[in-house]
Design a protein around this nucleic acid. Structure first.
Lengths: 124, 124
DNA sequence: TATTGTTATACTCTATAACTATA
DNA sequence: TATAGTTATAGAGTATAACAATA
């Protein structure tokens, strides 16, 4: 929770919220994705995604384009400005990960991830 | 996050939310506490605490009593039913902690807590 | 008939301002 | 003048239902 608060506070300087970061990340890795696919991937109701997408589009970070073969859907793409913003956000995330693990050795970091993965397996 | 979801889902069977659990825990450990103290301890606005306290009182889990020496404040106490509920919630939390760590040895559990404490120190 | 995006709406959580009764 | 509790209110985040256009 402390890490989360830390990262969220940093991203607030770009006026970006965690959900927006995750949407930008998914679109960046999967250009042309339909809203329904993002909705399923991130477990966000498609009704709630509409406003988020509108906000990201209004800020010039993403755009909706027609999808060939299905006139109901629209593909989502990052704009050049969107790519620049995502790049800055990734740098922030990386910097905060370095901060969070600065008291750990490389071996301890690996060990931490290994133990957390087992906890996750146990609760999944 | 997986652990949190896990515990929250279990506590929903008693219709208890994470915030309510934390308030019951703090009152249980500090009988007679004033709302302002809980507000500061749990970082909950005193305005938002009012409704939570009302809800817990309505369900017969806590009660407000006069504080000698300060007629503005009211001390909060668990009722017998509140103590019983808190006890059940603690059992749930303990059971889920056992589930979460069931793939770890005792030494690995200690190591995990040690590493997480360092990450927390680094971000605090 | 089913799916995609959308609107409308409701409920919870969280945040601020302002009031009251005391101190 | 400050503090404890309260009320009112507004903003996020998240949930469901229903609609139009299209499949």
């Amino acid at each position: 929770m402390a890490i989360f608060q830390h990262i969220i506070r940093a991203m607030e300087t770009l006026d970006v919220r965690p959900g927006q970061f995750s949407v930008l990340t998914v679109i960046g890795a999967n250009p042309g994705l339909k809203q329904i696919a993002i909705s399923e991937a991130l477990d966000i109701r498609r009704a709630n995604l509409v406003g988020m997408i509108n906000g990201l589009e209004r800020r010039g970070w993403i755009e909706r384009r027609a999808v060939r073969g299905d006139r109901r859907a629209q593909g989502l793409y990052l704009t050049p400005r969107g790519r620049a913003t995502l790049s800055r956000l990734r740098s922030m995330a990386a910097r905060h990960e370095r901060t969070a693990t600065r008291l750990l050795t490389a071996a301890e970091k690996r060990q931490l991830l290994r133990l957390l993965a087992r906890v996750h397996d146990a609760t999944a």
